[in-house]
Design a protein around this nucleic acid. Structure first.
Length: 584
DNA sequence: CTGGGGAGGGGGCCC
DNA sequence: TGGGCCCCCTCCCCA
């Protein structure tokens, strides 16, 4: 015990502290420290607050407490977009630590949605989110914005990226959320005081011990801090519509859901109800399609992560093409991500057009080959796929659905469109073959475009000769002309017959038969199970494609067949959906 | 339950 | 020597 007391009389540095407390045996270097400490035991509080009746053991504590009455907040956060002030330095330090934690979290999610400000770890996930938000909510948002503020334009907050509608809303948002004194012309309280200026000063500490100076713009409740107010705003659906913009309304009834799963469950539950039947099929099929898209994108991302394929361009909300004529430039290396975007766009955008299954087959084949062929060897595939995408889009733009078309004319238009798409798909297949042939050769030469058909340059890179490509092109053009003349797109069958082609044809036919059976059944649950099975099968095909890309060339050809067979199945499934769910 | 701010209090350092 | 100040820990409260 005596040893312990002696140790207590020595500080960490070994210095002697001769003034020891007789109650707890703590030692201090000076007597006044001991006196101050003894008050802990005696409870003596000699220092009284001049504003209230509170008493304290230390004078500094009184001074610190007095700031509650005066409103003085000398410790300001100097970080941009913050500006908070605190009574105690330690509170500011804790606040800064919170900032660091937020920054650390933001580092893990550097991609922000321009609509809701939500952060994402990858640009792919951001794009998926953005596409879903734009497609499923934009109409609702615009409608609500027009109703609430008379058609004001949507403006993103420069600080938190949330979208508010109209300048006044932005000013209010800046004031309420970010406490930006420059966001309004009205006088704001001084930076050192969180309390509003008043003609007759009122002791805020007495009026309200907690300084709830963050009013809710909806219900008027005050909250002590910004975080509390933000949490509270979640209970106001109208603020969700105008700020975070994350509502999922049912287009049939008045139900509104805060999560997509809620809407999907609602539609699943109401799918047999006559009024909901159409909308339910539409929503559920679209959700299933988006799931498939996410699977493909995830597989592409995982496969291409090390080959630069994920060096994506910034997302464009208007899905604009990168060139004026809607084609990708031949230097598509940095635009491979955009190509993937376009592929995903097409997979997602049914647009009420009953496309043939070759479209999806070609797209899926391109995606599979992008995965199977590393690095710039996939450029030809990407360019061809982009051209196919462009052709489809131009076809859509050129031929809007006629109001009351004659049956024959409509059929002809459809056949013409399909014929063109088939020719582009054939070009894509050529590019795939070229990429496979050029695999493991140094480095692929840039491609130039010839009416949508990728054509190799005349270098000695081991690719198909210009003559052969030209022969392919002429043959396709002839087939296209013949098909258009005969109004029979079936004339546009793929060329280069081979055992693999025969197997592919058989797989496609089997898939089509399965699709017809699914149409006859018209059972959505079965369709969902099929979609899941296809997703698994597709994942297997992707894995095989990756392995084959590292193996010999003929193995790549096999993987192509596998992917196309899977894609054909997927196409058949989409055809089922399209036939069951004609787009509004 | 958790995150974040408000507030009280103990102890050390400086002049 | 002692007053003043600062640092830091801790608990409380709120959403």
């Amino acid at each position: 015990m005596q040893m312990h007391a002696r140790e207590l009389q020595r500080g960490l540095g070994g210095e002697v502290k001769p003034h020891q407390c007789q109650q707890c045996l703590k030692s201090f270097s000076s007597n006044h420290q001991l006196v101050q400490h003894i008050r802990v035991h005696t409870g003596e509080k000699p220092y009284k607050c001049s504003y209230c009746d509170r008493r304290f053991k230390q004078l500094s504590h009184v001074q610190q407490h007095t700031r509650l009455h005066t409103g003085e907040r000398p410790y300001k956060c100097h970080l941009p977009d913050c500006g908070r002030a605190f009574i105690q330095l330690s509170n500011l330090q804790q606040h800064l630590r919170n900032h660091d934690a937020q920054v650390e979290r933001a580092k893990n999610r550097p991609f922000h949605c321009n609509i809701c400000g939500k952060g994402f770890a990858t640009e792919s996930s951001l794009r998926t989110h953005t596409a879903k938000e734009l497609q499923l909510h934009l109409g609702v948002l615009q409608q609500h914005a027009a109703l609430m503020i008379g058609g004001a334009t949507a403006t993103p907050c420069p600080i938190c990226h949330k979208v508010v509608f109209g300048g006044e809303a932005l000013v209010e948002h800046m004031k309420n959320t970010h406490k930006d004194p420059n966001a309004s012309g009205v006088a704001s309280p001084p930076a050192t005081s969180p309390y509003p200026a008043q003609a007759k000063p009122i002791d805020p500490y007495i009026a309200k011990r907690r300084t709830a100076n963050h009013p809710c713009p909806v219900c008027g409740k005050h909250y002590v801090n910004e975080g509390s107010l933000r949490k509270h705003l979640a209970c106001h659906p109208e603020t969700q519509l105008t700020s975070s913009l994350r509502m999922w309304p049912c287009s049939v009834c008045q139900a509104v859901f805060t999560h997509e799963n809620g809407l999907l469950s609602h539609m699943e539950h109401m799918r047999m109800e006559p009024k909901h039947q159409f909308a339910a099929q539409y929503v559920l099929s679209r959700a299933a399609a988006e799931r498939r898209e996410r699977d493909i994108l995830a597989a592409v991302s995982a496969s291409a992560g090390g080959s630069g394929l994920l060096n994506l361009a910034p997302p464009s909300p208007t899905h604009s093409d990168s060139s004026s004529n809607g084609r990708l430039s031949s230097s598509a290396g940095s635009e491979a991500g955009a190509t993937v975007n376009k592929l995903s766009d097409l997979l997602r955008s049914n647009n009420g057009q009953a496309y043939g299954d070759e479209r999806v087959a070609a797209i899926a084949a391109a995606a599979a080959n992008m995965m199977a062929q590393p690095g710039e060897g996939a450029n030809a595939v990407q360019v061809a796929a982009a051209n196919l995408v462009s052709a489809m889009r131009q076809q859509l733009a050129r031929e809007p659905p006629p109001e009351t078309p004659a049956p024959n004319e409509a059929t002809l238009r459809m056949q013409q469109a399909e014929a063109l798409l088939r020719s582009q798909a054939e070009a894509l297949r050529l590019a795939v073959s070229q990429a496979a042939a050029a695999h493991n050769t140094e480095p692929p030469s840039p491609l130039r475009h010839n009416g949508g058909f990728p054509t190799p340059t005349n270098d000695a890179s081991g690719q198909l000769s210009p003559e052969l490509v030209e022969a392919f092109r002429i043959a396709q053009e002839q087939r296209l002309e013949q098909a258009l003349r005969l109004h029979d797109p079936r004339m546009l069958g793929f060329n280069i017959p081979s055992p693999q082609q025969v197997a592919q044809q058989a797989a496609q036919q089997a898939a089509q038969q399965a699709a017809q059976q699914a149409v006859a059944a018209q059972h959505a649950a079965q369709a969902q199970a099929q979609a899941q099975a296809q997703a698994q099968a597709q994942a297997q095909a992707q894995a095989q494609a990756q392995a084959q890309a590292q193996a010999a060339q003929h193995m790549q050809q096999s993987s192509l067949q596998m992917a196309q067979a899977q894609a054909a199945q997927q196409a058949a499934q989409q055809a089922v959906h399209l036939q069951q769910n004609p787009q509004p």
